[in-house]
Amino acid sequence: MQPFTQLTGIVAPLEALNVDTDQIIPKQFLKRIERTGYGPMLFFDWRYLADEKTPNPDFEMNAPRYQGASILLSKDNFGCGSSREHAPWALENYGIRCILAPSFADIFYYNCFNNGILPVKVASETVDQLFAEVRASEGYQLTVDLEALRIVKPDGSTIAFEIHPFLRERLLNGWDQIGLTLRHEDKISAYEKARAIA
């Protein structure tokens, strides 16, 4: 998994509450066998017109100024619904490495850490203010610094955030669950030896 230390990138606004995993990636794409390639299916039903090809001009993220965004700004309860890991896969494939929102659904939140994405809880008023600033200046970028636990705005001012120390360590080191367990590989080998598992 890609480590996450510091990221500077364009911020895309997705002004909706309760963005659920069905909206992040609709269920018709779950029969695929790949873990990658879900980027074009991200927000499928919002992003395209009825012909399923033409970008929907009313979907704000489609605007040219937000192309290449790596930070997503959204509202409360982001990622609710099913536990499908296709949701973080789609975000990551699209290029999103960090999501700023006032709150996240539980399973989605932890799924992010298995996929190199940093979900940051930011106070509601701050999020509202960020929406305004993002829209006010084209090319608006933020720097998210996981080591220093702060977000740096274009004017140099900062927003501090918190995260569970262990989750922070995992992302900083790029440890997925497997990586974590493999820190204890010696224990697994010893266990296997004791049970004579070759």
């Binding site: 066998i33 790949e34 873990r35 990658t36 890991e85 896969w89 262990f166 974590l180 367990t181 820190r183 204890h184 224990k187 697994i188 266990y191 296997e192 049970r195």
Partner: peptide, 28 residues
């Protein structure tokens, strides 16, 4: 196998079965 402080226990698995619907992404 081991329970690291502050983390979930690591449990050894004797047998794993796989079928076609939930395994492809794991292999990838």
């Amino acid at each position: 196998v081991y329970t690291p402080a502050g983390e979930d226990p690591i449990l050894y698995i004797d047998r794993h079965y796989a079928h076609e619907v939930t395994s492809a992404q794991a292999f990838e």
